[in-house]
Amino acid sequence: MTSPVLAAAASEGSEGWWSGVAYPIIPHPGEIIIGLIAFSILYVVMAKFVVPRFEQTFEERREAIEGGMEKAERAQAEAERTLAEYKQQLAEAREEAGRIREEARAQGAQILEEMRQRAESEAQRVTESAQRQIASERQQAMLSLRGEVGGLATELASRIVGESLADEARQSRVVDRFLEDLERGERESMPLGGTGGGSHPVGDPDAGGGVLGFLKRGRS
């Protein structure tokens, strides 16, 4: 296209300044018009189709992202809520278990205590009744002994002495004195019944057999 400058300048008078060497800043009128038309066409395409579509795409994408984020947040919240629930339930269950264990322990201790008390009271009762029985038996034995021993001793004495001791009062006095001497000599700690042993019925058949042995042991 580059033809010599002189040739270009000389060739055609129809050439304007826009084409000349010296004036590159003189616009070519046809090019201005084409430039405006080109811009207008592209503008219409962009404004009518391209820009709205892009805007719609951006909007949809923004919504999708926001929706997704919202969904994720919801799921997260749900998960946290469930976790908290589980934790609470777990804590409750633990507490419940502890409580039950504590209760059972307390109950066991109580049962044990009750049993022990019952056993103790039972034992005490048994002991007491045994003691009572022993005491009463001993008392009984003592009384019957006293009468029998008195009778025997009196008879023995009257035989030996030859003296009749028919008189009740005197007889009783003698017996008592004898017994007191006996007690003082051997078994002072053993309390015995009061006076007037002779007035009680004598001759318990059970006690009768052991009286002599008892006396013998006491003597020796």
């Binding site: 296209m1 070519h28 046809g30 090019e31 084409i34 430039g35």
Partner: peptide, 26 residues
């Protein structure tokens, strides 16, 4: 090279000549 290298008329040669940049912008 000179400013003349930018003048590329395709059809015609006047103020409303069809030039190469017109084709390019189209």
């Amino acid at each position: 090279p000179s400013a003349y290298d930018f003048w590329h008329p395709l059809v015609g040669d006047g103020p409303f000549a069809l030039t190469r940049p017109m084709i390019l912008i189209a």
